[in-house]
Each structure stands twice: as structure tokens, then as C-alpha cells.
Design a protein around this nucleic acid. Structure first.
Length: 432
RNA sequence: GUGAGCGUAGUUCAAUGGUAGAGCACUGGAUUGUGGUUCCAGCCGUUGGGGGUUCGAGUCCCCUCGCUCACCCCA
């Protein structure tokens, strides 16, 4: 801001620091724990792939491919792109490693940075993080339900049970074209009344007119035919079975007939988890089924379903729950004098080897300033080591929170704090 | 890519066109071994950058960079 710093993070890219990083850890760890109970295993794929994988997989006409990819040539003249999403890479990984030879369905999750060259805004970054899951090899709605159940489980464990889950079916190769025709016929008469974007969509992607937010478009599409009324037999059964399963599992959801996913590869089930507390970019997680993608990318004809969570958005919600807390060290050792310094450092090492967070003061500074430092670090206990203590073979301890203090034999200092660790669980609430 | 708002100390913000300030934070101290509260002191700026108008610009105008929010689109 002051213009003095020469280097700044690139636009739309940011540092994640404590205490926010604690929220990220919590999300990552909770997700991994939940996913593993559903039999999903982690994979890690490169963050760059050949550009063709994305253009083919995500779709030539999509905004992501058309204008949002970080694409460059490597020194061998190959066109490389930073991944704008995770599914294409996961599909490539599935095909390349011939994972279809393993028992189906194969279930995987991943997390990491994605890159899209967009104008940043609240909840949107050029480098952003997703946790994604993909399950290959089953067309059964039971698998769709399992994913939704798993997603719900995760949200509940994170303390976000009130988020809205919306589902829809957008049909398949067989029934979507016929629905498009019906929809276009319905819209034809009022075509001139739509916003410029929708005029364009009328030609390029009529389904998207359904989720336009412009008021007059909302009005003009009143009474439009629903895609779910025009699904083929198989798609309809799939969708109704999914709803039955969700109800049996007591997973709250609403059917949103106007929800359409942006990426080309989705078929049948589409779903989205949104929050009312995130500004314009309110999607926390989204996903759906993509039964044609694996084959289209050159693999076997294997159906699949998956979803992705936006890390920054989840973390944003958790932060609002004011669970942003930070801790200080369990023990701060204030030593006075050279001999005490050596003794203090030895004790610090000992305690650390037992898993206790220990900070040490500057033995050249006054006890007062060491105490102040201990307080600012939000230390749970201060250990004071001076002439008196050392000659007596003891240490003075003080608990900053309540001011209690006392003396105890140095020989037992390990157990002394180990005991207190369990009960005190020092956690200090901090503003922001 | 389009539109709008905002850039002053580490931070949050002041300053009818007339000498750039305050709180918080940070560092030290208040008689030699006890933190937080209080008191005192110290540190803090090319007012994002460049040009223009003016006797004089943080303030007005233009350009530029950056941030923010929204659209498009999306996690």
C-alpha cells in the first residue's frame, strides 16, 4: 500500500497465514477423515497438464477454457495449462493408471490449488483451493446419494449443517436435446425481451437462461417447461431414486429446476451447496455426474460422479462462526543470569521432546520485560529460573490466566506440565 | 473483458486549498525478582506513482498502478 514494497503477491493470489491457516487445517483434516470412512483415498496429481486435456475435458466453448486458463508454452514448445479445476486431471489419472481394472467404483479425493485468470472479487481468486472427490465406475444413484451423504457429513462435522443443498437433473445425451428444443420454443416469443446476455445464451447455451438473475428474465421465463418433466425414462428413474434415497437418509435438499451447471461435461445429477453469508459468490461446493467424460477423454466407457468444495469459501464461513482462535505456548521460561539461561535451555529441550510448546525469554532482559513478553505471547505458564530456584533445585511457576503461582522441584518439571497440558488445553480467544 | 468505490504511519482513521495529526500496535522505563490495568518516554510518513491548475495541493483536474465490490462466469 505504501508503495515502498517492491514485490507483492500477484493479483488474485494471496498468502494464508495464522490464524486463518488453522481453519484450513481443520477443513482438510475433517474432509480426509470423513472421506476415508466412505472408502475414498487420496490422490495427488500435477497442477499442470497439457492444455488439450482441459479443452477437451471441460469443453471448448466454456468460459474457463475460452478466457480463464493460465496457458503457456514450455521449452519444448508444448502447450501447458495450470489446472482450472480438478476433475479433468483426476479423469486423466484414472485412465492413465488404468484404474478401471480395479473393482468399481473407484473413489478418490484430492486437494490443492486451482488457477483461473478471472477478475478477483469477494470469494474469488486466481489461485484458489479446492477439495474434490471423484467416484468412477458406477451409474447407480446410490453412488450419487453416497456422495451427497458424505458431503453433508462433512458440513455437519465442520459445524455448517444449515447450508442449502440443491439438486437437479440435467438429463443425458438422449433427452437434453429434446428438452432444449421445447425450451427454445417456449422462449421464442419473448426472445427480444431478455437481457443481452440471455439473447446470446439463446443461441449458445439456452439452459443457462434458466438461472439468469436479471429480473425481467426471471419474469419472462415464468412457466417455462421443466427439464425434469422431459427426462428420458432412465434419467427420470435415476433422479427419482436419488431423491428417495436422500429422503431415506434424511439429507435435506431442495430440487431447483433452474440450476444448471456451467461445465459441459455434466450429465443427470447436478448439485450445489450455497450459503447466504458469502456475498455474490455463494457456492461452497458443487458437483454432479459426468457419465461421458472418461470415454471422451480417451478412456473406457465409465460413468462417474464427483464434487468440489471451495476452500476459501468454507474457511470464510468458519471464520464467521468466530471460531478463529489462536493459542500461545504452554510454557514460557524466564531465566535470569547466565547459569539460569543454560538450565532454562536444557529444560526447554526436555519439555519440547515431550511434545510441549516452550518459548524462552531473553535472560539479559529484566524479569518484568520477560513477563510482559510471556503475556503477549499468550503463554499459559511462566517458569521463572533464578539464583534462588537453582540453588534449591526448584522452579517458580506462574499461571498467567489466573495469577496463581508456586514452586516445585525441578526434577519433576516434565510431569508437572504434562499433567496440566491435558486439563488446561490453553486456547486464547483473539479478536479476528 | 465491463462497471462502480477507495488509496494518508505497521494498523484503524483525522486534517473549510494554507505548518500532515490521533488512537491502537511496537520498544523502553516507573529503585535492583513477577505480566495484563495505569502513567511517562521513544519510534512511525517521499499522503500509491507521475503530470497539471494554483502564490500554495493530502484536498481540485488528467494519466497510471494497486486494492475492493459487482457483472460475466464460477468453488
Amino acid at each position: 500500500m505504501s508503495g515502498a514494497e517492491k514485490y507483492r503477491a500477484l493479483k488474485g493470489m494471496r498468502d494464508v497465514l495464522p490464524p486463518e491457516i488453522d481453519l484450513w487445517h481443520r477443513v482438510e483434516q475433517t474432509a480426509a477423515a470423513v472421506f476415508e470412512t466412505y472408502g475414498f483415498r487420496e490422490i495427488r496429481t500435477p497442477i499442470a497438464e497439457s492444455t488439450a486435456l482441459f479443452t477437451r475435458g471441460i469443453g471448448e466453448g466454456t468460459d474457463i477454457v475460452e478466457k480463464e486458463m493460465y496457458t503457456f508454452e514450455d521449452k519444448g514448445g508444448r502447450s501447458i495449462s495450470l489446472r482450472p479445476e480438478g476433475t479433468a486431471s483426476a479423469v486423466r489419472c484414472y485412465i492413465e493408471n488404468q484404474l478401471h481394472t480395479l473393482p468399481s467404483p473407484q473413489k478418490y479425493y484430492y486437494s490443492g490449488p486451482m488457477f483461473r485468470y478471472e477478475r478477483p472479487q469477494s470469494g474469488r481468486f486466481r489461485q484458489f483451493y479446492q477439495i474434490g472427490v471423484e467416484a468412477f465406475g458406477s451409474a447407480s444413484p446410490v453412488l450419487d446419494a453416497e456422495l451427497l451423504s458424505m458431503l453433508r457429513q462433512l458440513l455437519v462435522r465442520l459445524g455448517l449443517p444449515e447450508l442449502n443443498v440443491q439438486i437437479n437433473s440435467i438429463g443425458c445425451e438422449a433427452c437434453r436435446p429434446t428438452y432444449k428444443k421445447v425450451l427454445l420454443e417456449f422462449l421464442e416469443g419473448s426472445r427480444d425481451g431478455f437481457c443481452p446476455d440471455c439473447q446470446r445464451r439463446y443461441m449458445s447455451n439456452p439452459l443457462r437462461i434458466l438461472d439468469c438473475k436479471v429480473e425481467r428474465c426471471v419474469g419472462l421465463r415464468q412457466g417455462a417447461p421443466r427439464i425434469t418433466d422431459h427426462l428420458c425414462e432412465d434419467c427420470r428413474t435415476h433422479f427419482t431414486t436419488l431423491q428417495t434415497l436422500l429422503s431415506k437418509l434424511e439429507i435435506p435438499f431442495v430440487v431447483n429446476h433452474e440450476m444448471v451447471r456451467g461445465l459441459d461435461y455434466y450429465t443427470r445429477t447436478a448439485f450445489e451447496v450455497t450459503s447466504g453469508n458469502l456475498g455474490a459468490q455463494n457456492a461452497v461446493a458443487a458437483g454432479g455426474r459426468y457419465d461421458r467424460l472418461v470415454k471422451e477423454c480417451g478412456g473406457p466407457d465409465v460413468p462417474a460422479v464427483g464434487f468440489a468444495l471451495g476452500m476459501e469459501r468454507i474457511a470464510g464461513l468458519l471464520k464467521q462462526l468466530s471460531s478463529a482462535e489462536t493459542g500461545g505456548p504452554m510454557v514460557f521460561i524466564a531465566a535470569m543470569g547466565e547459569y539460569a539461561l543454560y538450565e532454562g535451555l536444557r529444560i526447554a529441550e526436555k519439555l519440547r521432546s515431550e511434545g510441549i510448546w516452550v518459548e524462552t525469554g531473553d535472560s539479559a532482559a529484566s524479569l518484568k520485560s520477560q513477563m510482559r513478553k510471556a503475556d503477549r505471547l499468550a503463554s499459559e505458564y511462566v517458569v521463572i529460573l533464578g539464583e534462588d530456584e537453582l540453588t534449591a533445585g526448584e522452579f517458580t511457576w506462574k499461571r498467567l490466566k489466573d495469577g496463581s503461582d508456586g514452586r516445585a522441584p525441578l526434577a519433576g518439571i516434565g510431569p508437572f506440565f504434562a499433567e496440566r497440558m491435558v486439563s488446561s488445553r490453553k486456547r486464547v480467544n483473539v479478536v479476528e
